[in-house]
Design a binder for these strands. Structure first.
Length: 835
RNA sequence: GCGGGUGUGGCGGAAUGGUAGACGCCGGGGACUUAAAAUCCCCUGAUCUUUGAUCGUGCGGGUUCGAGUCCCGCCACCCGCACCA
């Protein structure tokens, strides 16, 4: 009696061991083959692999296995983004050392990944918390420091009062910390910065070359970098001072009716002895923090006694302190042109300031009134002296030219992008390799003393930075003068760790961070796959870091990721009890149309389908599913149905279907019959068509379509009678499905007596001659509707097709004797009869 | 507010301007079985006067012999940014 069920538990383990023993997926930098670097964003070792990881890594895995079948030497590595706050939180909550906690999580998650059978090169695995890794990172930091791309300054920072740490602008969402969700405060601290702004222009221009990045991501980066061009010029103030302002609309300068500065602008601060001014400044600080408040915030101003002299008309414009002017953009001061800027319009309306028109649709409408809002669109300049009649663009250039000639202003570019603050007042991160000496100032740690290792004996009893409190760690002798000095106790933002890990995967010498020549063999990454949530932060930093290293001659590549793919999330229905508490899918059962709580029998409300998250309890544990259905069924599910960029709704019946299909294929593979003879031309054609189509689909990352093709070919093959062609079709399915269901494929390959591992077998060749159809189905339309379908020989003439169509009984009935005005024939496709 | 995306059966989704709904899931019917599981077969957009016809891809127009697809104007939802001068 033959076993006719595929035993996934046995097969999964067997083939995972076989790949590991053979070193199948170990990448060889010296191989003569073409190289493919397939990379998925490495995970934070939070404790367990979740379905989102499984989906992400399955996509990369299919690509990696496919590229191997296509003859490439593939680098498909995995590692751990291992520094970060959760480890410290665990330390505080459970009294376990962050390193210990992290290592245990890594061990667990690695075992989980292995059970899914990913084609990973584990020989290159590392964690960013390995001293070897962060030691090299410290060396790179010092390289950038020497190149002048790192600096320290006191600055107002975003302080997260819950996590007790500094956040980058990018980590503040709606005025709240991205992790803790706590309201962010402002604090003055000495901080380390990376000069990402030096590369603003280049980072922006580089986006144009990233053809295989989603437009959405490029646009988000473009907006984040925020280039704007305009005029910076100074107003002479009535108190004799000069006030620099920045405007992108110098063409509207004759429409200026006031000048405004930010509440924290020096001019405003200079007036703060006046209690009214001080009170207004306080009010501004209180108001504008959250997005919700900003949306409805009224434009508020305080009119000072100072006036500003208009550079052309000499008119005295009132100077306001205004709540809508931002200190950290441009110069922190603006000229107010109410007619052509909505904020200025609202402000002028409230404070009864003149609203002049200086741009009009055409010169005859120079005095047209405004209809309740500013007009920021294009037009012709009016009421503006020498600018009258010019276009907006001409006028901009003219004003800039005159300002530059007269010396009171110049054309400038202003960026939204800020330098990257990398200091974190945290223990579990890469120590910044700097020593502070009272005599010598800031002294880099000599490279031969790297890595600066984190001390192991730390306590997490009190919030804040344990490095600061450590009894000995920060006390060192100055490398310059030998006198007692202090170590920097800040650690690096973990985004630094993930800004170069892809380089270390490609090349990992002991004595330096990487070898540029070896990097050049693999980079840029051919497919980089991860979540859209990294569209700005990680991806911009990685692009910057790579550029910065290229800039100082450490690298020859500038763009790390040739193609980016942002995959959708794995979602699941949510379940809630009447009191609003969430239930996990295990806790509910279906009762007809409704759900009930298994334990209490209470009715359960099925809610929206949203991203799986612990807080909503709508998670499904991959391990449990693998145990039940095997790795291949889970992998297949991750690839089926939803296009990869969209969300994938998890369903129990879906995974059951995948489990059934694994068994169905296993039965079909068992029908491979070496003694069968004869040709089945139609099936042969379908098999060859599938070879072409599945390859195209995989290359386009349309895994859902590749899956559908395999289903189709499977269905056709099952129905076909035994023949040599059928054997070919069976073998074809085996190869096409191998990147997606590798364990089943190996097991069947071995059972069929295939040589070696199917993981090493090439992608099947298609025969173009077999693709050609000899018969085609022709649609016949009349009055724009389908009336009949006919079978005709491929390549039949227009005349023949027309005659065939008119001979159809159904067509004749539809025509009902009407006069035929025109017949349109598309060869091999359709006949459309117009009456 | 600005920018981007999406909208197709009960559900996930297919469809170079050329047979809308491939493929999967759910559902219905049947076969096999003492019974069940498993498996296999058939049906499965809506409506109607059901050998057939009409309607149907968010809504309203348009181009075309022919529109899910192209153009114009809306609507809804999702995502990103947000007082950026």
């Amino acid at each position: 009696m033959t076993e006719n069920r595929f035993d996934s538990a046995r097969a999964d383990a067997r083939w995972q061991a076989a790949w590991a023993d053979a070193g199948t997926f170990t990448a060889d930098s010296h191989a003569a083959k073409p190289k493919s670097y397939i990379l998925e964003m490495f995970p934070y070792p939070s404790g367990r692999i979740h379905m989102g990881h499984v989906r992400n890594y399955t996509m990369g895995d299919v690509l990696a296995r496919y590229r191997r079948m296509r003859g490439d030497e593939v680098l498909h590595p995995m590692g751990w983004d291992a520094f970060g706050m959760p480890a410290e939180n665990a330390a505080m909550e459970k009294g376990v050392h962050p390193g210990e906690w992290t290592r245990a999580n890594i061990a667990q998650m690695k075992a989980q990944l292995k059970r899914i059978g990913f084609a990973l090169d584990w020989t290159r695995e590392f964690a960013t918390c390995d001293p070897e890794y962060y030691g090299h990172e410290q060396a790179l930091f010092l390289d950038l420091y020497e190149a002048g791309l790192v600096y320290r300054r006191s600055s107002s920072v975003n302080w997260d009062p819950v996590d007790m740490t500094v956040l980058a602008n990018e980590q503040v969402i709606d005025g709240k910390g991205w992790r803790s969700g706590a309201e962010v405060e402002k604090r003055e601290l000495d901080q380390w910065f990376l000069k990402i702004t030096d590369f603003a222009e280049d980072l922006l221009a580089g986006l144009d070359d990233l053809e295989d990045w989603p437009d959405k991501v490029k646009l988000m980066q473009e907006n984040w970098i925020g280039k704007s061009q305009g005029l910076e010029f100074s107003f002479e103030l009535s108190d004799g001072a000069k006030l620099p302002v920045y405007t992108t609309r110098p063409d509207t300068i004759f429409g200026a009716s006031f000048v405004a500065v930010a509440a924290d602008h020096p001019v405003a601060q200079g007036l703060s002895d006046d209690p009214q001014v001080a009170a207004f400044i306080e009010e501004c600080k209180r108001g504008a923090t959250t997005a919700a408040a900003l949306e409805t915030a009224e434009k508020l101003g305080y009119r000072t006694a100072i006036t500003a002299r208009h550079p052309f008309t000499g008119q005295a414009l009132p100077l306001f302190i205004a709540n809508f002017v931002l200190m950290d953009y441009g110069t922190g001061a603006v000229m107010g042109v109410p007619g052509h800027d909505q904020r200025d319009f609202e402000f002028a309306t409230k404070y009864k300031l003149p609203i002049a028109r200086v741009v009009a649709p055409d010169p005859s409408k120079a005095d047209a009134p405004f209809e309740g809002e500013a007009e920021s669109g294009d037009g012709v300049i009016v009421n503006s002296d020498f600018l009258d009649g010019m276009s907006v663009e001409e006028a901009k250039a003219e004003v800039i030219a005159r300002a530059e000639n007269a010396g009171w202003g110049e054309g400038t570019t202003v960026w939204r992008l800020r330098d990257w603050g990398v200091s974190r007042q945290r223990y579990w991160g890469t120590p910044i390799p700097i020593i502070h000496c009272d005599a010598c100032g800031i002294v880099p740690v000599p490279k031969d003393q790297l890595p600066v290792k984190l001390p192991e004996d730390v306590d997490f009893e009190t919030p804040g930075n344990p490095l600061e409190r450590h009894p000995t760690w920060k006390h060192v002798d100055c490398p310059c003068c030998g006198k007692p000095a202090r170590r920097e106790t800040d650690t690096l933002d973990t985004f630094v760790d993930s800004s170069w890990y892809f380089l270390r995967f490609a090349s990992q010498p002991d004595d330096r961070p990487f070898d540029p020549e070896e990097i050049a063999k693999w980079l840029p990454v051919q497919h980089y796959i991860g979540g859209i949530e990294h569209a700005i932060l990680h991806l911009l930093y990685a692009r910057f870091w790579t550029r910065a290293l290229a800039h100082i001659g450490k690298l020859s590549v500038k763009e790390p990721f040739a193609a980016l793919f942002t995959q959708g999330m794995v979602t699941h229905e949510t379940y809630a009890l009447g009191d609003g508490s969430w239930l996990s899918p295990d806790e509910v059962k279906r009762n007809g149309e409704d759900y009930v709580h298994i334990e209490s029998g209470q009715p359960v409300t099925a809610g929206r389908v949203v991203k799986m998250s612990k807080s909503k309890k709508n998670v499904v544990d991959p391990d449990r599913i693998i145990e039940q259905y095997g790795a291949d069924a889970v992998r297949w599910f991750m690839l089926s149905d939803s296009p990869p960029e969209r969300d994938l709704p998890w369903s129990d019946s879906g995974i059951e279907g995948c489990g059934r299909f694994v068994q169905r294929l296993w039965r079909l593979f068992g029908q491979f019959d070496p003694s069968a003879t004869g040709e089945d031309k139609a099936l042969l054609r379908k098999a060859h068509q599938a070879i072409v189509a599945v390859a195209e689909d995989i290359e386009a990352l349309s895994f859902n379509k590749a899956v559908a093709r395999i289903y189709e070919l499977t269905g056709a093959t099952e129905k076909a009678a035994p023949s040599e062609s059928r054997n070919f079709a069976i073998r074809t399915i085996l190869h096409l499905a191998a990147p997606m269901m590798p364990h089943l494929a190996e097991e069947a390959w071995a059972a069929m007596g295939g040589e070696g591992l199917i993981a090493d077998a090439p992608w099947p060749e298609h025969d173009p001659a077999c693709l050609v159809e000899d018969e085609v189905t022709i649609a016949v339309q009349h009055k724009g509707k389908l009336r009949d379908t006919l079978t005709a020989p491929k390549g039949a003439s227009k005349e023949d097709l027309e005659a065939l169509a008119l001979a159809s009984e159904k067509v004749q009935r539809s025509l009902d004797g009407a006069d035929i005005r025109k017949v349109i024939v598309v060869p091999d496709r359709l006949v459309n009869i117009v009456t």
